[in-house]
Design a protein around this nucleic acid. Structure first.
Lengths: 233, 233
DNA sequence: TCAATCTCTATGTCCGGACAATCTGACTAC
DNA sequence: GTAGTCAGATTGTCCGGACATAGAGATTGA
C-alpha cells in the first residue's frame, strides 16, 4: 500500500474522530514531511487526495485547513442496490423480465449497436422493507455478461458487471420527473398520474464501450437522489 | 500559467479536434517529456488532470489511451442561470420576493443560524424563451451579500456571490419529485397535481459556512438534470 | 498444442532540492 | 489614525533521478 495513501487514510481518520478539528491548520508540509520521515511530494500527494475529497482546503501563504462542513459522500457512480444496502435498507429484487430482444432505435443509439440487433433486456422491481421503490429497465449488449436471474435477484447489476471483469469508467445520466402511466402506477403501488422520479443512464467502460443503458422510475415518496458535490477549481 | 496546465490544454485541444483519436496511445511519458523539454512530473501532472476529467485512461504496462466515449461535462456546482445561458436558452428572471424574514426551523438548521433569526428570502421565477421553467426559493444569511433585485434579475445568484468574494466550495443536494400544489401549478403554468421535479441545495464556502439554502421546483417538461459522472478509483 | 516462464515496456511510487507566487501581519511613514 | 510597504511563512510549480509493479507478448518446456 502506497505511503501517500497510508498517510491520507491516517489524516482522514484523524479528521473523522475529531483529532483534527474543523478549521485547524494542518501544519506546514515541509515540517510535516520531516516529522514523518517522508518527502514533501509524498506528503503533498496525500494532502491533495483529501483536498480532492473536499476534506481539506489549501491556501497559499496560509496553510492547509480542515473544512468545517461535514462532507458526507461525493457523488459517484454507484448502484441503487449498494446504496440501499449501505443505508441498511435491506434491498430485494424481483426480476420481471430477463430476455433477449431486438434493439429499439433509442436503445441502439445509446448502446452503439445496430438497430434491431439483439440485446439483453431485463426488467426488475426493487423493493426496500418489502415495499416497491423503483422499477428498473436495463438493456445490455450481448456477450458481455451472463445474466442469471438468480444472481440478479441476489445482488446489483453493477456488482455483476465488475465481477465479470468489466471496468466501469463513466456514465451519462438524466434525471427528470413525469406522471405515472397506468402500468407504472400499478407496478409501483401508486395512483395513475402520480409524480414519479425518472433516471436514464448510459454506462461506459474504460475502453469507451457502452455497457449498459437503464431507464428507471422511482417512487418519490420512497427515494430521492442525495449527493454532495465539489466546486472544481 | 503553469506549464502542466498549458500542456493539459494542448492535449485536450488535440483530443477535441481529432488530432488524438480515441483509443490511440499517447506515447510513453518519459519520451514525451524529453520531446517537450519538460520533466516527467510535469508531464504526469498534465496527464493526471485529464485522467481526472475522464478524457484519458492510464494502464500500467500498456500506456495512456484516449477514451472512446465522448465526455460532455462532468457534474459540477453550477447555477441554473449559467447552464441555461451556456445552452443558448436566453434565461430571464422575475424576482417575486426579496425580503428579510425570521428563519424557519428548516432554514435555520440548513444555514446554521438561530431559529427566528433574520435571513434573506428571495423567490424568483426563472424563464426560458419566455416560458416559466423553474420556481426558485432561496434563503441566505444576512451580511454576506447585498441582494439587489435589479442584479438578481440580470444574472444568477452564484455569480453574485462569487463577485462578492465568496469562494464556493461544496454543496449538498437532494433531487426528488412531487405533485404540484395549486399555487405551484399556477406559478409555473401547470395543472394542479402535475409532476414537478424538485431540488434542495445547501451551499458551503471554503470556510465551511453555509452561504445559501435553496428549494427549487422545475417543470419536468422543460428541464431535467443532465450530467456525466466518473468512477472514482 | 498448450501452459508456464521470462523479458520488455510503461506507469506507479518516492526522493531531495530549488525558486516563484501569494497571503498575513507587523512596521513605517504621512 | 490610516494607508502603504515590507518581511516572513506557506503552498505552488518544476526539475532530475531511482526503483517497484503490473501488463503483454515472446519464448520455452511439457
Amino acid at each position: 500500500m502506497p505511503l501517500y495513501f497510508q498517510l491520507a487514510q491516517q489524516l482522514e481518520a484523524a479528521i473523522e474522530h475529531g483529532a483534527l478539528t474543523p478549521g485547524s491548520l494542518l501544519g506546514n508540509e515541509i515540517e510535516l514531511a520531516a516529522r514523518l520521515g517522508l518527502s514533501r511530494p509524498t506528503v503533498r500527494q496525500a494532502i491533495q487526495s483529501l483536498v480532492d475529497k473536499g476534506l481539506l482546503v489549501r491556501r497559499r501563504g496560509v496553510g492547509t485547513q480542515v473544512v468545517h462542513s461535514q462532507v458526507k459522500r461525493p457523488l459517484e457512480l454507484s448502484s441503487l442496490y449498494d446504496d440501499l444496502e449501505a443505508a441498511g435498507q435491506r434491498p430485494a429484487t424481483t426480476v420481471l423480465v430477463n430476455t433477449v430482444v431486438p434493439a429499439s432505435a433509442e436503445v441502439a443509439a445509446a448502446l452503439g449497436v445496430a438497430e434491431d440487433g439483439d440485446v439483453h433486456r431485463i426488467e426488475r422491481l426493487r423493493l426496500a422493507h418489502g415495499e416497491p421503490m423503483a422499477y428498473l429497465v436495463n438493456h445490455l449488449p450481448l456477450g458481455l455478461l451472463d445474466l442469471d436471474t438468480g444472481q440478479l435477484e441476489a445482488t446489483g447489476l453493477y456488482r455483476l458487471m465488475r465481477s465479470a471483469g468489466i471496468t466501469l469508467h463513466s456514465a451519462r445520466q438524466s434525471i427528470g420527473a413525469r406522471a405515472a402511466t397506468r402500468d407504472e402506477a400499478e407496478r409501483l403501488g401508486e395512483e395513475e398520474g402520480a409524480a414519479l422520479l425518472t433516471m436514464q443512464r448510459t454506462t461506459f467502460d474504460d475502453t469507451g464501450r457502452a455497457v449498459e443503458f437503464g431507464t428507471h422510475t422511482y417512487r418519490p415518496s420512497r427515494y430521492s437522489f442525495e449527493f454532495q458535490l465539489l466546486v472544481r477549481s
